[in-house]
Design a protein around this nucleic acid. Structure first.
Length: 878
RNA sequence: GCCGGGAUGGCGGAACUGGUAGACGCACGGGACUCAAAAUCCCGCGGCCGCAAGGUCGUGCGAGUUCGAUUCUCGCUCCCGGCACCA
């Protein structure tokens, strides 16, 4: 054993050893419980960032820990390799997205390997390979046959200068990011997945996922947004037909004073034909953003259409307005407006001087009549008033009565509405899975036959920002119609990359199967037992994956209702940013590695200076690591300087996995210092362990009365096993930061005991240290596998640490016949008393009341009440 | 705007089911070693009052429930994630 810690050397050796012994290879084995541990696969953006390091370290800790517990573990890795950044890089550098992507994958794979993750690389996949996306295409066609995939028009951002569709991300303040041109909305035909058909199951099955965080389940439930209400039909006053609206507040129907439709609603289009001012307004509405956040925060604007509808129950004529706050994508694209009991309607009615009619009386007496300004109580359920025959009813009674009346007149009915919309998967972009459709002049849209799959994406295109380069590729476009054999043209739209990530976890079970999307091995490995990824995926990716699983199940491909049994959503990695304002008024950011922070003698910050010129910089606060703020820390330099174990240990120690993690150079130093101490301690005891048998790695024989005969041994073992007990509970509930501190406590304990025992250490004491160090190494192993591996074999413990079981707590080492109780007077801590473990309540009370400080604080008053919490505290109330 | 989450010393965080607030680490201060520095080791370290013993305040803000609240309830403030074409 080397006397000092050389992480680069021991990590290289450990990794080479594990590669040679195929330590991470996962093989189906029915004799053991399986554990499928999956981290969200990375987008190959160029190099790893700290978020990746954190994500995959969490996954690796769980994978290694479960192996220690006897599970047959599979931890795979792959690449979410299609997507927009590759096209952006192509535009910037002229490199084809394929080459850029494959180069990035090669580099990032090396980085992942240098971190020592126990990944079964034989299962590696990349979504941009024809072997993978063939099955996107195949399933797309199966779902098209079943009617789950269908075609309709959808709205996209159109850049009129580049003549191209832009992603939301590429629209900045309503303008194209490259051209600066005002963006228009455009309606184009697209393929959709009928996820709404599964809305009820996706919602109900959330209850079958106790392993998911409550907040994610709540977010998904709200996203699906099932609401029960009434569809109301308002007949057109000036023509045939009805305006359909959906409402959850049918009890307020008699208070409706106008209706409002979205700018895209047919009624708006119709009215705009006769009114140029309205036409201009409708155009203006269509110009705005397609993003919900923008629509919800923009100023509410509207214009009357001049058209009217008839109130289905009162027969009153109500005006129809076009309003920019009505969404075409939700419900019917039209709403009935009840200004007295809906905040948005109230605001709108006040602005445009539309009538406000109160039809609900406050039940709590919070208000008498609805008057400006708006009060939250106006929207609460209450008793109906001013509603003719429907007056005097409670909420549910009113809804029932009004729904029945509407149904009788054939002008409405109760129904369920979802907020969830169908999933549009067409993208007018190059670097994605080609949609396997052929357009034929005589046969229309023809699916590509199975035996012609995959439709291969040419890999040498270089997008230039003006439309999809596939449209310029005759060798891709030109084909023959599979039905009639005449010349035809291929579809050039590609699929949303969420399609790729909706089923990759199934493919890891059988990545080598060229003849089927999934096979029986998926049945063995699935569901994923533990899924780990960013909270930012709480809705879209996870919901699409759940939907996809159910769709595949219904095609008979798998027997699986839910893909992910347990979910851990890890927090983001943050860092402080530093900047200066240049003379031109621009903000220039400096990387934190180039900043010197000065502090006073209390540790408070006094100055932040740029090292190169010694001049001050300002703090831009704490935020996610990003290119724009230049506050990223490169994992590569960290690994090279400190080693993988330090990087991993720092990540686990600094924050609990679900919380944000604040980067700290000093924290990294601390982690490194700890590992050096671990190594030094191992080396220090190396010689003395020679006489301890290898058999004793897991079973140690101590005399039953060791604590009495050798108190120092008893005390050491009590400490070690107390910490182990805590560490075991913590790793099980995934509190890795306290598992890391348990490791530190173990080392402190062993070191203190060693210092006390000195050179006179007895054989039992050496054995207790041997036991404690073996426990320490196994507690650390999931987090810092390399140093644990090297010490384990270096110190002569039996076998390899990859095969070692998680240590067991020796309850007999914890035994003690006295407990310390906290004594409180009136809830305030006043002292501690030592009582025999067997002491009953009366004895404890007596001991406490006789306590000197208690007497002082009770001032001789008799206790009014005494609360005793066994094993914890006693509270005397006077 | 809507949905979800968070806030504890100078800093990251700990406190399992309402029971000793601040484990563990970082930073900082003092000391040892050294010609010196680094590294390492030892001690201290929430605020205020006090030589000390001890007292007192203290978990974003304001209320409430309780013998007892970081933990439960209600009302706020600020920060973060998502909002359907970033992944």
């Amino acid at each position: 054993m080397q006397p000092s810690y050389h992480p680069q050397k021991i990590e290289r050796e450990a990794q080479a050893h594990w590669q040679k012994t195929k330590a991470a290879l996962a093989v189906e084995d029915a004799s053991k419980p399986k554990y499928y541990c999956l981290s969200m696969f990375p987008y190959p953006s160029g190099k790893l960032h700290m978020g990746h390091v954190r994500n995959y370290t969490i996954g690796d800790v769980l994978a290694r820990f479960h192996r220690m517990q006897g599970y047959n573990v599979m931890q795979p890795m792959g690449w979410d390799a299609f997507g927009l950044p590759a096209e952006n890089a192509a535009m910037a550098n002229g490199v084809p997205p394929a080459k850029w992507t494959y180069d990035n994958i090669a580099y990032m794979k090396k980085q992942l390997q240098s971190l020592g993750f126990a990944i079964d690389w034989e299962r590696e996949l990349a979504t941009c390979t024809p072997q993978y996306y063939k099955w996107n295409q195949w399933l797309f066609l199966k779902l098209l046959e079943k009617g789950i995939v269908y075609k309709k028009t959808g709205t996209v951002n159109w850049d009129p200068v580049d003549q191209t569709v832009l992603a939301n991300e590429q629209v900045i303040d309503g303008r194209g990011w490259r051209t600066g041109a005002l963006i228009e909305k455009r309606e184009i035909p697209m393929y959709y997945m009928r996820i709404t058909q599964y809305a009820d199951e996706l919602l109900d099955a959330l209850d079958t996922l106790p392993g998911w965080p409550e907040r994610v389940r709540t977010m998904q439930a709200n996203w699906i947004g099932r609401s029960e209400g009434v569809e109301v039909h308002f007949p057109y006053a000036e023509s045939e037909g009805v305006l359909k609206v959906f409402t959850t507040r049918a009890d307020t129907l008699m208070g409706a004073t106008y209706c409002a439709v979205a700018a895209e609603h047919p009624l708006a289009t119709l009215a705009a034909k006769k009114d140029w001012q309205l036409a201009r307004f409708v155009e203006e509405c269509k110009r705005g953003s397609v993003m919900e956040a923008d629509i919800a925060t923009q100023e509410k604007k509207g214009m009357p259409t001049g058209l009217h509808v008839v109130h289905p129950l009162s027969g009153e004529k109500l005006p129809v307005w076009v309003a920019n706050y009505v969404l075409m994508g939700y419900g019917e694209g039209a709403v009935m407006a009840v200004p007295a009991h809906d905040e948005r309607d109230f605001e709108f009615a006040t602005k445009y001087e539309l009538p406000i009619r109160q039809v609900i009386k406050s039940k709590s007496g919070a208000y008498e009549s609805v008057v400006a300004p708006w009060q939250a109580e106006y929207a609460e359920h209450g008793v109906t008033v001013n509603s003719g025959e429907f007056s005097g009813l409670e909420f549910q009674q009113a809804v029932d009565a009004i729904a029945a009346a509407l149904e009788k007149k054939n002008l409405g009915n109760k129904r369920v509405q979802y907020r969830l919309r169908d999933w549009g998967i067409s993208r007018q972009r190059y670097w994605g899975t080609p949609i396997p459709i052929i357009h034929c002049e005589s046969c229309g849209d023809v699916p590509v036959p199975d035996d012609q799959l995959p439709v291969v994406l040419p890999e040498d295109c270089v997008p230039d920002g003006s439309g999809n380069p596939l449209n310029k590729r005759a060798d891709f476009l030109d084909c023959t119609c599979p039905k009639c054999g005449k010349p035809a043209r291929r579809e050039t739209d590609t699929m949303d990359t969420f399609v790729d990530s909706s089923w990759y976890y199934l493919r890891y079970a059988c990545p080598d199967n060229a003849n089927a999307m999934v096979d029986e091995r998926a049945q063995y490995w699935l569901p994923v037992d533990q899924y780990i990824g960013g909270i930012e995926h709480a809705i879209l990716h996870l919901l699409y994956s759940r939907f996809w699983t159910k769709a595949m199940r219904d095609l008979g491909l798998i027997k699986l209702d839910e893909p992910f049994a347990h979910l851990l959503t890890q927090g983001m990695v943050l860092n402080e940013s530093f900047f200066r304002k240049t003379e031109a008024g621009r903000i220039q950011y400096f990387n934190p590695v180039d900043i010197e922070i000065r502090t006073d003698d209390k540790g408070n910050r006094t100055a932040t200076l740029l090292r190169s010129d010694g001049q001050p910089v300002e703090s831009g606060g704490i935020g996610t690591m990003s290119k724009s703020k230049n506050n990223g820390v490169d994992p590569q330099s960290l690994i090279e300087e400190y080693g993988a174990d330090t990087a991993r240990f720092f990540m686990m120690f600094t924050s609990p996995p679900e919380q944000t993690l604040l980067w700290s150079d000093e924290g990294v130093d601390g982690a490194s210092r700890f590992l050096k101490r671990v190594w030094a301690f191992g080396h220090q005891w190396h010689e003395r362990f020679i006489n301890v048998s290898k058999q004793q790695t897991t079973t140690y024989a101590f005399p039953a009365d060791i604590a009495k005969v050798e108190p120092i041994v008893g005390a050491l073992r009590r400490e070690v096993h107390t910490v182990l007990k805590q560490a075991t509970a913590d790793i099980e509930r995934k509190h890795f930061n306290t598992v890391a501190s348990a490791g530190m406590k173990l080392l402190n304990t062993l070191q203190d005991a060693g210092n006390k025992a000195g050179a006179t250490a007895s054989p039992h004491f050496v054995q207790a240290v041997h036991e404690g160090l073996g426990i320490l190494m196994r507690v650390l192993y999931p987090m810092t596998p390399h140093i644990a591996h090297a010490l384990w074999s270096g110190l002569g413990y039996a076998g390899e640490i990859v095969d070692a079981p998680w240590p067991k707590v020796d309850e007999s080492a914890l035994a003690s016949d006295e407990v310390e109780l906290v004594v409180q007077v009136n809830g305030k801590l006043r002292g501690h008393i030592l009582v025999p473990k067997s002491a009953d309540k009366a004895v404890i009370e007596q001991l406490a009341l006789a306590n000197e400080t208690v007497l002082k604080h009770t001032n001789g008053q008799p206790p009014r009440k005494i609360v005793v919490v066994p094993g914890r505290l006693i509270n005397i109330v006077v």
